[in-house]
């Protein structure tokens, strides 16, 4: 058509669209960039009251200082333990549940999907009070079991649904014929279902890891000993120090969000390469 002409209407419209989209992207990225800049301000100087990225120079030392002020390395190790255990268990339980749901007769399946959708609407933070009472009776307060427990139900029913949608979309006859060939349910889950669902597993792994890594309310309520604290609750230690330590607090914030953001880009890259149909829907979760 007319896209060779330098100032065609379509081209102008496209330029306008890019300008608008760029402005929106910049607006949403600005807070994160500000945080990076603020985390690198030298401590001890009065905070700048002008807009400028680095009015007093760049203090990389802040990122070392936060590890000396607070047992941050220990907290990172704790968070890693909880998140890796939680994500691993989640992959197991969510893929079992999704796989089994996909092979149930339609009536049962509809009922189970309904249950999973209902659970999506019941945010787990709504039940922390009775959970506390329950965990206290079971002697689970101040243990990581209390933090990892939600992995039993696949952490979030969204993860179960992600596996379910995947296994529904992948030729249901495949599992049927595997069964007729004498493969048991567990064998076909391990040999056929899991390898097929690799993109979903990657997505669930990343989302579940981020879920446990970011969890704040559970460790706030269930952990008592400071040496067991995860990074999420450890951040409050910086907040409870003097208010002038903004740079250190924000440096710790950066350390906490870095893996989550990194994993998000890893996931996005992997899904883009595989061009999987789940790409859009799971980014929405």
């Amino acid at each position: 058509m007319n896209h060779r002409q330098p100032f065609s209407r379509g081209r102008l419209a496209r330029l306008g669209w890019h300008a608008a989209a760029l402005a929106v992207a910049a607006l949403f990225l600005a807070p994160l960039l500000w945080v990076v800049s603020a985390s690198l301000q030298p401590v001890g100087l009065p905070p700048a009251r002008t807009i400028g990225w680095f009015p007093h120079g760049v203090a990389w030392a802040n990122y070392g200082e936060i590890f000396r002020l607070v047992p941050l390395a220990q907290q990172i190790a704790n968070s890693l333990l909880v998140s890796v255990t939680g994500a691993t268990l989640t992959i197991l339980t969510a893929s079992w549940a999704g796989y089994a749901m996909a092979q149930m007769p339609p009536a049962v399946r509809g009922w189970l999907v309904g249950l999973a959708l209902l659970l999506l609407l019941a945010p787990t933070s709504a039940v922390w009070l009775p959970r506390y009472v329950l965990f206290a009776h079971l002697g689970l307060i101040d243990t990581y079991v209390a933090l990892v427990a939600p992995a039993l139900m696949g952490a979030k029913s969204l993860f179960v649904l992600m596996y379910f949608w995947h296994f529904r979309s992948v030729t249901p006859e495949l599992f049927e014929s595997a069964w007729l060939d004498g493969a048991g349910v567990w064998t076909s889950w391990r040999r056929i279902a899991l390898p097929l669902a690799r993109p979903t597993t990657l997505a669930v792994a990343v989302l579940a890891f981020s879920h446990f890594w970011s969890d704040f309310v559970d460790p706030l309520l269930f952990l008592k000993s400071p040496e067991r604290f995860t990074v999420a609750v450890g951040l409050r230690m910086f907040q409870q120090m003097e208010t002038t330590h903004w740079a250190l607090l924000l440096a710790a914030v950066m350390v906490m969000i870095a893996p989550v953001i990194l994993f998000y880009f890893v996931l996005q890259g992997a899904l883009q390469r595989s061009n999987h149909p789940l790409r859009r829907s799971l980014q929405g979760g």
């Binding site: 149930m104 659970l119 349910v185």
Partner: peptide, 25 residues
């Protein structure tokens, strides 16, 4: 039965961590 067994952790977790606490509240 095996399929229900695979669903068991999810159903048990949903009951223990959401259903029961809601009733308990």
């Amino acid at each position: 039965a095996q399929l229900w067994l695979m669903l068991a952790p999810f159903l048990a977790g949903a009951f223990l961590l959401i259903g029961l606490p809601t009733l308990l509240t």
